[in-house]
Amino acid sequence: MRQLTIVQALNEALAIKLEEDGDTLVFGEDIGKNGGVFRVTDGLQDKFGGDRVFDTPLAESGILGMAIGLAENKFRPVPELQFFGFVLEAMDSIAGQMSRYRYRTGGAKNLPITIRAPFGGGVHTPELHSDSFEGMVTQVPGIRVVVPSSPYDAKGLLISSIESDDPVLFLEHLKLYRSVKEEVPKEKYTVPLDKANIVRAGDGVTVVAYGQMVHEAVLAAEKSDASVEVIDLRTISPIDMDTIEKSVKKTGNVVVVQEAQRSSGVMGNLLGEIAEHCFMYLDSPPKRVTPPDTAFAFGAAENIWIPDSVKIEETIRETLEF
């Protein structure tokens, strides 16, 4: 079977949805003629026309606010934030508006919006182009936050996201866009939005990660002498605690990894659930591998800031030596 990168897999997912559903709209800054700064929307405007795939003025709040208005009239908008670091300009549209619209309307109205945005470090971008701000959105109920770590998942998860009647924030890791290739079916398929993925089975320790950190965790597992189970969250909010708790109850040890700063993030919350529901099964204190609570290091400085497989392997060892 042919091998695709995440960029190609995402492009294919968008083309499938644009083709089969006339209400799907793709828009954002430079996504038309230019095909997006990472080429995820390459060729889509030519194929589906400027009414379906269009450039917008440079205004993030405006883009997401428009998505809400379009969805109110039964469109299925797939707006792009050029970089997730720019989400700070659009937080009201996400946290104050679309996420709570179903709640606000007593369950009567849905806003099926999928916000796509590149995030994460490793490619030495300017400041605020790589930040992992996802924790700010995972606190917000009413929106799913989805992070694919492979081309297969990227295509299936994006199709599921667009078909979801609830809003989705779909985060695409910058470093993974072109660095991983794998077999991806040409036809349409979906990957569920409520299931974490056990990417490597083991019974000694559970390592939970998402995005690029999944690959670091797998590298660490391969280097480790222990039997490591690696779980890719895939959807970081709401989290599939079921899969994680089953694994932790089996292994008795847990290490969580995130590229975002340590405090108030996805993994801190996850460990809270584990403490509450798996306490009697634990053989060692759960451990976190994260960068420190500083601003996201940018440019080449991120090399010494973002966690890597060495750090993860070390932490696995400490956990098992407890």
Partner: peptide, 25 residues
Amino acid sequence: AMPPQVIIGAQIVQAAGLGLSFKLR
């Protein structure tokens, strides 16, 4: 109609989207 808006200005960007939706449809 959409429910009464509490955040000053949010209705303006949303109205732009609805206005565009009427044009597209």
